[in-house]
Amino acid sequence: MKKVKIYVTLRESILDPQGSAVKGSLVKMGYDEVEDLRIGKYLELTIGDTEKDIDTIVKEMCEKVLTNVVIEDYRYEVEEAN
């Protein structure tokens, strides 16, 4: 069994108004060293034993439905799970 951790973020070229608003709050709280803040999504998949290549299916799932490649980037980590 594997645990797949997927991180989805808006592409760099895209404005993240939510991130900007939260960054504004942090700066107002006195954390004025915060230069940028971007909000994304975290998905955790548990994948049962399979013959399929894990990278292939994770990429497929990400590109077909879990992310929209027009506006989002993703990266993932695969860990052994018990």
Partner: peptide
């Protein structure tokens, strides 16, 4: 329709949230 690829681009959150 944009998710389906029938139209180009995507719809993001309103700028003012």
């Amino acid at each position: 329709l944009t998710e389906a690829g029938l139209l180009p681009g995507a719809l993001l959150r309103n700028k003012n949230l």
